[in-house]
Structure formats: structure tokens, C-alpha cells
Amino acid sequence: MIKVLIADDEALVRAGLRMILQSDPEIEVVAEATDGAEAIDQALAHRPDVVLMDIRMPRLDGLAATERISGWPQPPRVLVLTTFDRDEYVYTALQHGAAGFLFKDTPPRELTAAVRTVAEGNAILAPSVTRHLIDHFSQGSGVRDGARQRVAALTPREREVLAAVAEGLSNARIGHVLHLSEATVKAHVSQIMAKLDAANRVQIAVLAHQAGIL
């Protein structure tokens, strides 16, 4: 079971998220929190695998709570869920250790898939967030040439997997599209990150766009 903590100051939002997540038989909502301070307390008490974290909350906001939680030994993975599409939130959340960043209008199936993805140790971002990051990190001369040189080290199959990751597809979806097992896709992604010296899926997605392979 994937244990999830929901942190949001709106009761209706928490109820909706709980209903969506518990429709998946392998996800269990173990606790809820109404602000960042309570999220920290509940995370300590219940040791969830994933924390769904709102940004704007009273007492302590989600960004500060994410930074605190991510600093623990073997911390839960934090998936930031918000209505706000502002660059500084994206960068701050990622700098504070968030493993993902999604909007509250994310379809239910994509939300449960995102929880699974970050629980597996991977990073995930909403497509529009990825575009912001690409624009931010693609500035400066020689960026495309450098990215192409790094991507040239990949095999043709790894380039296919890289392109799919850059499109925001989960491992399961990539396996379906490329006719591979999910375990094989996961192995390819790990190998791609090693070859590109990237820490997570977000970084390799940015590199793919910089190299112009899509």
C-alpha cells in the first residue's frame, strides 16, 4: 500500500482528494492536515510514503513545510498540489525538495498515477510547469549544442524513452506506447539519468527539450 497524507486548508478539497485516491486499491490516505505545521506533525506520526501538499495554508505554508519534511532522513515524497501557476512557486518547491508539482484540476486518473510515480522515487510535473522550467533553463548561448552532445550518448531506444518522459508520460504509459514492460522502462530511465548525469525525470525532460528531440 502507498500511504498518503493530504495537507490542504479546505475541507472540501481534502474530501475530494481522499475520494479520488482511495478509489485506487493500492493507495491509503492515512491522515489529513489543515496547514503546514499540522502536516509536519502528521507526517511524523504516520510516516506516509507521499504527502499531497497545498501551497497557501495558514500558520505555515506548504513550501516551508516541504522544506522541513524533505530535510528528514528517509523523508516522504512531497507532491505539491495547487491552483497557482507561478514560476517562483515551481522553483521554490523543487529547491525545497518537492518530487512533483501538479494543479488541482488534474484529472483523477492522472492524480493517482502521479502519486504512484513519486512513491516509486521519480519526479513528475504538470506539462505547463515543465514548459516554464524549459524556458527558464534553456536561456544562454550554446545550450542546445551542449544538450545535443549529452543526448548523443543515448541509444535509439533510450532516446525514444527520453522523448516520452519529456512528454510527461508515466512509466506505465511509456511501456504501453513503446511495447515494453514497466520494469524495462524503469531500467531505461535509470540508465538515461546516469548517462546524462541527471538527478530526476524533470532534468532529463528539460535536456530533451533543449536538445530539440521532440
Rank of each mutant, 00 (worst) to 15 (best):
P76L: 05
Y91V: 07
V206C: 15
S170T: 12
N200H: 13
L111F: 14
M1L: 14
V177H: 15
S141E: 03
A15C: 05
Q95T: 11
D9V: 02
V78E: 02
D24C: 15
S181L: 04
N122L: 14
P73N: 11
A164I: 04
Y89E: 00
Q210H: 08
M19F: 07
R159D: 03
T117K: 10
L207A: 07
A99Y: 11
P76Q: 07
I134N: 04
D35E: 13
A119Q: 10
A164F: 04
L81Y: 10
E32Q: 10
F103S: 00
K104P: 00
Y89K: 00
Q95D: 10
P156F: 03
L111Y: 05
D8N: 03
Q95F: 05
G212C: 07
I27R: 08
D35G: 07
E158G: 06
L60V: 14
D41N: 08
I124H: 03
A15N: 05
G121Q: 07
Q149E: 12
R173G: 08
V13F: 06
M57G: 02
V151H: 02
A65F: 02
T112S: 14
A33E: 09
D61H: 02
I192R: 06
H132K: 09
R144Y: 08
G140T: 09
L162Y: 06
M53N: 01
V206T: 13
A113K: 12
Q149Y: 13
H46Q: 08
T130F: 07
E28F: 13
P75Y: 07
R109A: 13
A194G: 07
D197M: 14
V4L: 13
V143D: 02
S170A: 10
M53K: 01
E120W: 13
T112P: 05
A153W: 12
V129Q: 00
M57C: 04
H179N: 15
T117H: 06
G168R: 13
I69L: 01
L81A: 11
D41P: 03
E67M: 04
R150H: 08
V51T: 04
A152K: 10
F137C: 11
L162T: 03
Q74V: 14
E167V: 05
V206I: 15
K186S: 08
T117W: 07
A31I: 13
G168H: 12
L111T: 02
V118H: 09
V78Y: 01
A114V: 08
E67R: 14
A199Q: 13
T155R: 11
